[in-house]
Structure formats: structure tokens, C-alpha cells
Design a protein around this nucleic acid. Structure first.
Lengths: 230, 230
DNA sequence: ACCTGAACACCGTTCAAGT
DNA sequence: ACCTGAACACCGTTCAAGT
């Protein structure tokens, strides 16, 4: 008997960039960065891989749109009205938590600098520094230091998530690195050896926040001496 | 006439991980991250792509080794004996300059956290904080904040370098982003609009150092209040 | 032990052909 | 205008076969 090759039935709901990005986020959350391929995305959307290119320029465009979506949600959800220092800490923690929940966002933020998401983050930090009384000449550098801290931690966390994908539990994994650090040459690495024990037990989120506080303290010190060090 | 397929002559000098990494660095410096393929590397070394796998586990292993090589050179070259704050600034700048010269190192550092290079960087910053009189309980967080700043800027610079690969000159490129920022909604983005003008003219290296100074100032403030904020 | 290079399994992206 | 899916040009990685 003859087997007729059936063409796949055309979907009734039209494709759109919005639906494509939504599906991409689902795939990224479920399977990590490696799971997002145009073939997987096309299958998920019951279409051909070429159809996606009608709505999206390329993979970078797709990842940028997905990242912007997640970041926009965090920034928009920020409750206004808190005192500036608290608002800055809350925004930083909101971004940290979003990146923790979607590690692929961390990868994107740390490797795509001029993302549409960036002005939102910049504004969130910068406008609060203004309220804190940071002199105008120092605002750009101070804001960028806060942003860099968020993006830097984002990249490291995403990389850690990639390593953890293979089921190793976090404490055991950090423990094995701590062991390596503890075995380094005492003459060359006294500090690293001393700090190794803290590695498996430290809290990433608290350490991230400690960094934000350190930077904010440095910014506070700035108000006393308007002239930068030579 | 019959054309005999000549097998490529076997090289006289043996392959080694060292020679492979050296060649990889040459290719990365010359052509950027996209230029390093096992085929290109095999051609450069006049061998088969499979031969490389005898000495190197996979591409990640290769990139890690290349990155460690560059970082080790910076850390080793650091002149000792300067006052701790100056030593920290010098190490930070040394790393910045190395990443600036080899943007692919920035990509690696920002996406591969537990690189062999990391203990060297940690030790460089951490041991100096000890000399600065930072209390032991705060040393881990303070060191990691400095390291994150270096890695964060590394990632952003590498990403910028990827965008610049296509010949656009830096000021023009940043100018076009500044234009976009300047056109954002004044009600939602007052700070970003104000800061846009500084974007094309600012110096990345100085801004990086301003961030290091901010963190160091925050660390200095730490000595006065040993108990962390609740 | 080390090297060769074809083969495999996968990508992102393009494009003629369909509706 | 939008979609289909095969085809193209690449990858990293493996492996039988050579020396």
C-alpha cells in the first residue's frame, strides 16, 4: 500500500515575535542554554525553522529579546518609594534572583553589553544615586560600578549553573574546589588557603549583597571628598 | 598521468599541549574567538584535528589553558613591595590591560569561574587586603567584590570587542548608542538621558579604576565598623 | 604512544517552493 | 505576507587505520 507523505497541518494561530520569544524562554528555562536550537524551537512551535527567521533576525536577536523580557519584568515590579539605599539594594537583589532563576539571562547580560535591558538597569541605580546626593560628576562611574557588579555576578552564576547541570550538588562541588585550594603551596597562596574553608558554606546571595554594600559605602565616602584622588 | 595522493609529511617536532596552547593563543589574538576551530588549529600546526585531542580534552580545556597562560603572566610580572592599595590598583590595571589586549581572555574569565587562573587573582587581591588591616571576617567578601569587578568588566570589554570587530570606530559606535539613550522617554529615563553625553567620551580604563577605588573606599570604611549592618 | 583524516552528529542560516 | 522543510556551510568530536 502506498504511504502518502502528509504535509504537517498548518497551525491556526499565527506566529509572532512575541510567541517565539515566549517559547524560547520556556525552552531555556526547562533545558538550559544548550537546549535552545532553531530546530527545537520550530518543533515546539509546530513550524519550520525558516519561519522563525521571518520574525527574528538571528539567534542573538532572539536571546536579546528573551533577556530584555525577563529584566523588564524585574525593573517594572520594583516598588517605588523606599529610601534610595534600600531601593538600590532591592533592585540589585531582584536582578540577582531573576538571574538565579534563569541562569541563561546571566550569560546574556555578561556577554551582550548594549542590550535594550541596560538603560533600565542604569536608570534604576543612577536615579537613586542622584537622590543619595552623589555629585553629578561621579554619578556615571558610580552607577557603572553597581551595574558591573550585577553583570559580573550574573556571568559567574550562569557559569556555575552550567557546571551544576550535571546533578552535582552545590556544596559537594564547591567542596572539591576548596580541597584544591587548600592544597596549594602555602608560600605562594597563604590567603587562598585560609579562605578555602569558607567556599563551600558561603551564601552567594549574601556575598553579592555584601559587594553592593561595599560599593555603596565607597560611594558614601565620595560625598565627603568631591575632588577625586590624583 | 596518475596523480598520487601524497600523505602530508609528518612534522619533525612533536606535538605537545604547550605548543598547541601557544598556537591557539596566536590564532585567538589574530582572528578573535570565532577564528579558533580545531580545523584551523590543525592546519596551523600541520597536523590532523584528531591529533589535538591526544593532548587536550576538549575545546573548553584548550581555552582554559590559554587563559591561564595569559593571566599567569600578568600576576607573575607584578612587582612586589608597593604599598597594598597601590599594589591592588596595579594588579587590577594589569589584568585590565591584558584583557584589553586579548579580548577572548575576558570572555573566558567571565564565563568560566573556577579557572586555574582564579586562585592567582584571589591571592593577589586578598593578601593585600590583609595588609590593609581588613578584618578576617570581611576579607572573603571584599576580595570577591574586587575579583567580580575585574571579571565583570572583562566580560563587557570582550563583548564590546566582538562588536568592534566589524571596523566601526569606538567613538562613533558609542555615539550611536548615546543617541538612542538620549531619545528615551524623559519621564522614565531622566538619569540615562543625562548620562548619555558622557558615553562616547568616557575612558573605559579610568572608569574601571574608579570602580576599584570606590570598592577600596568602601573597604576602608569597613575598618571603622567591624559589625556588618543588620 | 602518537598521529592522520574521513566520518558522524549536530548546528545556524538560507532559499526555492508552497499557500 | 507568511510559512515549509530540504539544503548548505560550517562546527566539535570520534575512531579505524596508520607509523
Amino acid at each position: 500500500m502506498a504511504i502518502k507523505k502528509q504535509r504537517a497541518a498548518r497551525r491556526t494561530d499565527a506566529l509572532s515575535k512575541e510567541r517565539i520569544v515566549e517559547a524560547a524562554i520556556e525552552i531555556l528555562d526547562a533545558g538550559g542554554e544548550g537546549a535552545l536550537t532553531f530546530r527545537a524551537l520550530a518543533a515546539h512551535l509546530a513550524t519550520g525553522s525558516g519561519a522563525i527567521y521571518w520574525h527574528v533576525a538571528d539567534k542573538d536577536d532572539l536571546l536579546a529579546a528573551a533577556t530584555d523580557g525577563v529584566v523588564a519584568r524585574v525593573v517594572t515590579d520594583m516598588t517605588d518609594g523606599a529610601r534610595p539605599r534600600e531601593a538600590i539594594r532591592a533592585l540589585a537583589l531582584g536582578l540577582f534572583d531573576a538571574i538565579d532563576a534563569h541562569p541563561w539571562v546571566g550569560t546574556q547580560l555578561s556577554r551582550a553589553p548594549w542590550l535594550a535591558a541596560l538603560p533600565q538597569i542604569f536608570e534604576g541605580f543612577g536615579s537613586r544615586l542622584e537622590e543619595l546626593g552623589v555629585p553629578g560628576s561621579a554619578q556615571f562611574d558610580a552607577t557603572s560600578t553597581l551595574v558591573i557588579h550585577v553583570l559580573g555576578v550574573a556571568g559567574q552564576n550562569a557559569a556555575n549553573a552550567r557546571l551544576h547541570a550535571h546533578r552535582t550538588d552545590r556544596t559537594a562541588f564547591l567542596g572539591s574546589i576548596a580541597d584544591q585550594w587548600a592544597q596549594l603551596d602555602p608560600a605562594q597562596y597563604p590567603f587562598v588557603r585560609r579562605v578555602a574553608a569558607q567556599l563551600p558554606v558561603h551564601d552567594d546571595r549574601e556575598q553579592f549583597l555584601a559587594g553592593i554594600d561595599l560599593i555603596l559605602d565607597g560611594i558614601a565616602a565620595l560625598r565627603q571628598k568631591p575632588t577625586p584622588r590624583p
